[in-house]
């Protein structure tokens, strides 16, 4: 167990979601669900973040923004696609300005479906992401040694 899994820092970006998942992302930080008890901290700075929490689908306009955030994050990093829009485009997948889910541009590690996502499912997704983060860190360490 390293420091990463004890206190993963999250950055949240809203691709083109309806806000439903975004407010649930914030709701899990609140006293009711309180993910901060697991050491999870929501940061606004990509360079501080371990986990990218992406809600909503990808379009031409936000593609570069998402990639920019991802590229700035230090390794190892994990991508969490939150909600059905980030998973596949969801109800909006037939819209002309929706390219599809987050995996169109990023390597997604964990998919959390739901419309809007349930806070419990989201916490479960973050816990899984922490496991993957730890594995990636171990692999990175083994590669260097």
């Amino acid at each position: 167990m390293g420091a990463l899994s004890k206190s993963p820092w999250i950055i949240h970006y809203d691709g083109s979601s309806c806000n439903g998942c975004d407010i649930e992302v914030l709701a899990v930080l609140m006293p009711r669900f309180d993910v901060e008890r697991f050491g999870v901290i929501n940061t606004g700075n990509p360079k501080h973040a371990d986990i990218l929490l992406l809600t909503g689908s990808i379009n031409e306009q936000n593609k570069s923004v998402v990639l920019n955030i991802y590229d700035q994050m230090p390794d190892p990093k994990v991508v969490l696609a939150v909600g059905i829009c980030a998973t596949s485009g969801g109800i909006f997948r037939e819209c002309y300005n929706v390219m599809g889910g987050a995996d169109k541009v990023l390597p997604v590690d964990v998919y959390v479906p739901g419309c809007a996502v349930r806070p419990e499912a989201l916490i479960d997704g973050v816990v899984q992401a922490v496991g993957i983060l730890e594995k990636k860190r171990a692999a990175q360490k083994a590669g260097k040694a």
Binding site: S16, N59, Q61, C95
Partner: peptide
């Protein structure tokens, strides 16, 4: 325009 989905045209589908 970062979140534009174009859902008004979904009425056609």
């Amino acid at each position: 325009g970062f979140i534009h989905r174009g859902l008004e045209r979904l009425v056609e589908k």
